[in-house]
Nucleic acid binder design. Structure first.
Length: 433
DNA sequence: CCTTCCCGCCATTAC
DNA sequence: GTAATGGCGGGAAGG
């Protein structure tokens, strides 16, 4: 029963509350210039290769059976970004997104949750989000790193013999009376029974909600930001994010979620799928950058412009993912891939926005742990390394400000900038341990 | 077989 | 109460 659910096309359902701001209700579908859609991309850098050899246009062949690839969160994310990442967009409605992308509401929640956790979106109200875009990522990453480091030291200071759940209930702080992040609490889930006597922790029952995808995403990212290794397999990540309380079934679920997250982050080009150096196990590598630094600010480096795979792109049709069930037949557009090329990388975007910032010295890549091989020198084939870096974020921040003529956004960014400066100076001043 | 992970039921939470 | 959110895991596609 309840075959179709969703997309209640009728019922108004308080769609767009009268936002005081200039909430532009998105241009008309018709006028809307369809963003470029990435088609068939072969699994990211990893080179999962192959993929479906479907023709671009035309594809007169068999109406292929249903393909999961077309329904992946990664693709959906790509399309989502393509749809909203433009200057004139600042408000995102869930219903609208679901409709335009042709997916169930549930999926939009997935996307939105992870995007929000990396600073690309901010929840405004029920059914309503504010689009921040890639510009919000740096700040979010920095904060995550900060928090992560703090947590680490906090944990290190403790001398707990038992492998209890090292739970750090962090929370917002900041002297500023500004609640920028409210739902940021780290909590490791725990099975059902166990530990008859609960320590001083265990907040009033239900907070289980904070086991969310968003939080998981943040913790996952934190892993990359602090870890010394350059790649992690999802199993490993799951294990690490899950204390040690190896709960088998519990971990399976965790891994499932990590797959979801990894796909999204992958489509944003924040991570990339690879092989673990030694074992041949699949793992992920961080592409963004925000490693620890000694006082002198953070550096961002861009890996050699992502192998610009000759991905096919298609425009014209709107990026609506046709709604088809598992066992349905899909027709044309065999779209797959991620945000490719030019616009794909956060940092490229930043670069573009800044219109400059060409430094020579930067920190690229992790310092190979031990015997860990890095790409790069391995093959002299690397010809064009377009690594650029942004020396200081302050500069970047100020460059960003005038960027937005929109009052609301400007405000928002101003606030971010201030936050950066705040902790930044605090950091440099108080760095010496 | 094992890995990847989409779908959507249904518990929670918001209104 | 209804609607909005979002865990969670079955089980199918992909390799």
């Amino acid at each position: 029963m309840a075959t179709a659910q969703g997309t209640t096309s009728s019922s108004a359902a308080a769609d767009a509350p009268p936002p005081p701001e200039v909430a532009q209700p998105l241009p008309a579908p018709a006028l809307y210039q369809p963003p470029r859609l990435v088609v068939d991309g072969a699994g990211g850098g990893g080179g999962i290769g192959v993929g479906v050899g479907v023709g671009v246009v035309g594809k007169p062949c068999r109406h292929h059976a249903y393909s999961r690839k077309q329904k992946s969160l990664g693709l959906l994310c790509t399309n989502f970004v393509a749809l909203y990442d433009r200057e004139d967009v600042e408000s995102v409605g869930l219903d609208d997104a679901a409709m335009r992308l042709g997916v169930e509401r549930r999926r939009i929640y997935d996307i939105v949750n992870v995007l929000e956790s990396i600073g690309m979106l901010v929840r405004r109200a029920k059914n309503r989000y504010t689009w921040i875009g890639f510009g919000g990522v740096p700040a979010a990453l920095m904060e995550l790193k900060e928090r992560a480091l703090r947590e680490v030291s906090s944990v290190a200071s403790l001398s707990l013999d038992e492998t209890s759940a090292a739970n750090v209930s962090d929370d917002e702080d900041d002297a500023d009376g500004d609640a920028e992040s409210e739902k940021l609490s780290q909590s490791i889930d725990n099975p059902s029974s166990d530990r008859p006597d609960a320590p001083p922790c265990k907040l009033r029952s239900d907070h289980r909600k904070e086991k969310s995808l968003g939080l998981l995403t943040q913790n996952f990212v934190k892993l990359f930001l602090t870890m010394e290794l350059e790649t992690i397999s999802l199993d490993e990540a799951a294990k690490r994010l899950l204390g040690e309380g190896h709960a088998e079934s519990n971990m399976r679920t965790k891994v499932r979620r990590l797959y979801d997250i990894a796909n999204v982050l992958s489509s944003l080009n924040l991570i990339e799928k690879t092989q673990q150096v030694d074992s041949r196990k699949p793992a992920f590598r961080w592409l963004g950058q925000a490693k620890r630094n000694q006082g002198t600010g953070v550096t961002v480096a861009i890996p050699p412009t992502k192998k610009m795979l000759p991905n096919k792109r298609a425009f014209g049709t709107d990026l609506t993912n046709i709604d088809n069930k598992r066992g349905k037949l899909e027709s044309t557009t065999e779209s797959k891939g991620k945000l490719t090329q030019d616009g794909g990388n956060v940092f490229n975007n930043l670069q573009k926005q800044l219109g400059q910032g060409n430094r020579s010295d930067f920190v690229y890549g992790p310092f190979h742990p031990a015997g860990a091989r890095k790409q790069e020198h391995d093959n002299h084939k690397v010809q064009e390394k377009e690594r650029k870096s942004i020396q200081d974020w302050e500069n970047l921040a100020s460059s960003f400000r005038p960027q937005y003529q929109n009052q609301a956004l400007s405000d928002l960014f101003g606030h971010y900038v201030e936050a950066w400066k705040s902790w930044y100076s605090d950091l440099t001043r108080d760095t010496a341990s």
